[in-house]
């Protein structure tokens, strides 16, 4: 287990390093002069020089990369060009909306998907199965931002149960804050729950046809007992993979959904930063999101080993 964990940790570090290089190259090196990119083609040469100086763009690429990484490691993400405030502070604020939203959606999606998938698999071919499969088929196909708009139309504009957008703020109390995250979380969770339920079902059906389930049945376990005691844990391995991958889709989805609901999260910050050409903010925010995805996938790989003794032995 230790060896396995160490190996994964090394691969985590390598992934992070390569990802940071890719982001750095894409945003600071590929476009040529980021300062010109930020100020537009008509900028004066002395303004450009001043900006380059301010952003620390005068060093060699290597110096700039290492100071960016070094800064991030010590919590200094640079200063926003438009807001003149430390990027770390901005990210910290926005994270308090985006992270709870992602977790809220992930929890919701798992709580819907697991029972639905298990139910469908255990009653394979029944009306229940066909219903779950039909609903999830639509859930997978529905664009989440459109679903969000429809929910706004129904629950905010017509029924007035929720506000159409904005964030109540954590100061307004936990429930008020969670309430303003509920529609966005549902919009994010629905497609993910549909995918997860389908994966859960098919993985469980595959496992149920394994020889060892037949062995368990020969011992006198009922079909239900064989499913819960033997098939389910084995079926979890592909499901975990999907949960890990979904985190990156949740992050991506959250960026769009925040726009539908005017939530002041990371996603909206990134779009504002793009439109104001605030590259420092874009660079650090993207790095933060990629960091999140890679760390979650590391956690998933550790979870594999907890489920499967064959991996622990490595």
């Amino acid at each position: 287990m230790l060896r396995y964990t160490l190996k994964r940790l090394v691969s985590l570090a390598i992934s992070l390093a390569i990802a940071s290089v890719v982001i750095f190259l894409a945003i600071e090196i590929l476009p040529g002069d980021p300062a010109a990119n930020m100020l537009g083609v008509n900028a004066q040469e002395d303004t450009l020089a001043a900006l380059r100086d301010q952003l620390g763009l005068n060093g060699t690429p290597w110096e700039r990369y290492s100071s960016w990484i070094g800064g991030m490691l010590t919590g200094d993400f640079g200063t926003s060009y438009t807001y003149r405030t430390p990027v770390a502070e901005m990210l910290g604020e926005r994270l308090w909306i985006s992270l709870p939203l992602a977790l809220y959606a992930l929890t919701m999606s798992t709580l819907i998907a697991f029972p639905a998938g298990i139910w469908a698999a255990s009653k394979r071919g029944s009306v229940a199965d066909v219903t779950v499969m039909g609903v999830t088929q639509i859930g997978v196909a529905i664009p989440n931002f459109w679903f969000a708009m429809l929910m706004v139309l129904v629950f905010a504009i017509n029924l007035r149960w929720f506000s159409a957008g904005g964030f109540a703020g954590w100061d307004a109390g936990f429930f008020a804050a969670m309430k303003s995250l509920t529609l966005p979380a549902i919009a994010l969770a629905l497609p993910q729950a549909s995918i997860l339920a389908r994966v859960m079902r098919s993985s469980l059906l595959d496992t149920l046809s394994e020889d060892f389930v037949r062995t368990a049945r020969a011992k006198g376990l009922t079909r239900r007992q064989a499913l819960w005691r033997h098939a389910l844990r084995n079926a979890l391995i592909p499901v975990l993979t999907i949960i890990g991958m979904q985190f990156s889709f949740l992050i991506a989805g959250a960026i769009i959904i925040e726009n539908v609901f005017f939530l002041p999260g990371l996603g909206r910050m990134i779009f504002q930063a793009i439109s104001s050409r605030d590259l420092i903010v874009v660079e650090s925010a993207v790095m933060l999101l990629v960091f999140g995805v890679i760390v979650v996938n590391f956690a998933v790989e550790i979870a594999y080993a907890l489920v499967d003794p064959r991996l622990r032995a490595r």
């Binding site: 020889d211 060892f212 037949r214 049945r217 020969a218 006198g220």
Partner: peptide, 21 residues
């Protein structure tokens, strides 16, 4: 109630007959 109690069974493929985890 009878399976495993009154009648036991051994299968062909031992490599897959046991739950790996």
């Amino acid at each position: 109630k009878l399976r495993g109690n009154e009648v036991g069974m051994v299968f062909q493929e031992p490599m897959t007959a046991l739950n790996p985890i």
